[in-house]
């Protein structure tokens, strides 16, 4: 079975979870050899940029020690041969098309989405 994880809502609870929970879920599933890919759209396309540097949180004596590293988590997914697609139009509208990215991603036009979706038995739009 092939599944496509569609991630649209970026930066949702990422500082408290110390990751993006759907990227985390994809790592966990890849760990049991799931045949799975990722499609980033909406504001989640920002995840491919280098130099995302969420400041560490600190409240009184509680200091965050584990930085949220979404770009690193994505690189690790790509290293595990997970295909990461990114909707080009969503990058363009946000002015990100020429920004340095993590590499290894596949840009896709919105009108190519039907062909992409046809390749997967299950589509999970989170």
């Amino acid at each position: 079975m092939r599944a496509l994880q569609i991630i649209e809502a970026g930066y949702r609870g990422t500082l408290e979870e110390q990751d993006d929970t759907i990227i985390w879920l994809t790592h966990a599933m890849k760990g049991i050899d799931a045949d799975i890919s990722v499609l980033l759209c909406g504001n989640a396309v920002n995840y491919i940029l280098v130099d995302q540097a969420p400041p560490m949180l600190q409240f009184g004596n509680w200091v965050q020690t584990q930085a949220t590293d979404i770009e690193g988590d994505l690189v690790k997914l790509i290293d595990k041969d997970v295909e990461v697609y990114v909707v080009k139009e969503d990058l363009k509208s946000r002015g990100l098309i020429n920004r340095k990215n993590i590499g290894g991603i596949k840009l896709i036009d919105r009108n190519q989405l039907p062909s992409l979706l046809e390749k997967y038995e299950q589509l999970w739009h989170w």
Binding site: G13, T14, E16
Partner: peptide, 9 residues
């Protein structure tokens, strides 16, 4: 609730 949005942070 915690862990689900950026708003709580």
């Amino acid at each position: 609730p915690p862990f689900e949005s950026a708003r709580s942070t």
